[in-house]
C-alpha cells in the first residue's frame, strides 16, 4: 500500500478529501495539496518549530506527522487565525504592533504555539513566555520583541 490513500480531514473548519501517498508529510500536504503556504517548513526534523499547527486543538509539528494520519482529524493552520483580511487575530495584531517579527519565517509556527499556551496560561510572566517560546527558533529578532508581542497579546485577549 505505497499507493495513494484517500483521506478526509478538516482544515480551518473546511472539509477536504484528497488522495495522498503515505509518505507525504502533513506539512507538505498543507502547502502543496491545499495551497496553505502559511505553514512554513524549516528543519523537517522537529527542531525549529516553523511548521507548528494545531492537531485537534493541540500544537504539534506538522513535519513529524504523515498526512494519512490526519484522516478524520481537525487541523488549524495560521490561515485559520484571522476572521478575514481586515481583522487580524489579537495575537497577530500584537505581533504587528510590537514588531514581533523581522523576516517572518518563524512567525506562523510561533503563533500556532502561542494560541494554546495563552489559552492555558492567560496571564503569563516573561519567564513563562520565554520558556513557552523555547520550541520555536527565530534567527532574526533576539526574541525580545516576540516576548513583548506575546505579553501584549495576553493583555488584549483577556
Amino acid at each position: 500500500m505505497t499507493q495513494p490513500i484517500s483521506i478526509t480531514l478538516t482544515v480551518n473548519e473546511q472539509e477536504y478529501t484528497r488522495e495522498v501517498e503515505p509518505r507525504m508529510l502533513l506539512s507538505d500536504f498543507l502547502r502543496h495539496e491545499l495551497g496553505l503556504t502559511g505553514t512554513h517548513v524549516g528543519c523537517e526534523h522537529g527542531v525549529c518549530g516553523a511548521c507548528t499547527i494545531l492537531f485537534d486543538g493541540e500544537s504539534m509539528r506538522s513535519c513529524l506527522i504523515f498526512a494519512v494520519q490526519a484522516d478524520g482529524h481537525a487541523i488549524t493552520t495560521v490561515e485559520g487565525l484571522a476572521k478575514d483580511k481586515d481583522n487580524l487575530h489579537p495575537l497577530q495584531q500584537s505581533f504587528w504592533e510590537a514588531h514581533g517579527l523581522q523576516c517572518g519565517y518563524c512567525t506562523p509556527g510561533i503563533l500556532m504555539s502561542m494560541i494554546p499556551f495563552l489559552k492555558q496560561n492567560p496571564d503569563p510572566t516573561e519567564e513563562e513566555i520565554r520558556h513557552a517560546l523555547s520550541g520555536n527558533l527565530c534567527r532574526c529578532t533576539g526574541y525580545q520583541h516576540i516576548v513583548d508581542a506575546v505579553k501584549l497579546a495576553s493583555e488584549k485577549m483577556k
Partner: peptide
Amino acid sequence: IAHPQIRNR
C-alpha cells in the same frame, strides 16, 4: 522532555 509541541504527540 523536549517541548509541549513534542509531548503532545
